[in-house]
Amino acid sequence: MIIAVKNLWKEYGDNVVLENINLTVKEHEFVTIVGASGCGKTTFLRMLLGEETPTRGSFMLDGKPLPDEPGPDRGIVFQRYSVFPHLTVLENVMLGLEFAASPFLGKLFGTARKQAQSKAEAILNEVGLYEVRNHYASQLSGGMQQRLSIAQSVIREPRILLLDEPFGALDPGITDDMHKLILRLWDEHKMTIFMITHDIKEGFELGTRLLVFDKVRRDAQAQSAYGATITYDLPLKSVDRNVAKEVAEQTRRTEAFIQSAQLVASH
């Protein structure tokens, strides 16, 4: 059991974001997370990162409480901005190795550098960025930047890889290739993946397990009084299309509810 969450609540003052989350995740699962915006998906991911701590309940990694800051065992790919614009593609990928091996300068020289470089080049080959390895990251297209960000994380061989709507800003044509890439890397490196997505279809197609975050209780007078919880936890080999439709419909309804509640609150 790599992740074990028990009776977890997250509140900001009176605002309940997540309530009563229970979840265990085994090694090498590919967990996709869907849900309306404002249903605590990102808060959950930030807790996995170590950016947020639970208000109540426990969040265990390998049986120990999750560290309260980000670390190399949990890689992340955000929707945008997670590559370093001032470094070349190759330098971006080598950075993780340099941090690990050179505490004072954060930079490798000589043979150590050569070794890190060939390791980085191998991964760049894998994600199809070898040709542009000497370009600055800021010169790459959105899709290429996401590939780079994935390569950057994978080289540190994190046990858990977190993906926060990684393909949300990309053209639909590119997304297919990205899906193939992430599935291949997931299989090769035996990572456990948590991926947040807005695209319910993508969630059903990619994962081995799908979580739906949704609000069960709604109070139009006090929108923040109840938090979201996991309403569906589906193993994804045996799911039929009707369930996908049902989930899409409920997510849409919650989204509409949150929007109208916000509208009421702002008047």
């Binding site: 990162l49 950016e51 800051e69 980000p70 670390g71 190399p72 949990r74 890689g75 992340i76 955000f78 945008r80 901005y81 997670s82 590559v83 370093f84 614009p85 001032h86 470094l87 950075l95 993780g96 340099e98 941090f99 690990a100 505490p103 004072f104 300068l105 954060g106 930079k107 960000s149 950057q152 994380s153 540190r156 994190p158």
Partner: peptide
């Protein structure tokens, strides 16, 4: 961007390494 700072930490950067390789050059 906050994303860059978080990313560097998930790549194992200490505060000092983060300053040296991510913040200062920019």
């Amino acid at each position: 961007p906050r994303e860059q700072i978080i990313k560097a930490q998930t790549l194992g950067a200490s505060t000092w390494q983060l300053v040296l390789r991510v913040v200062l050059p920019q």
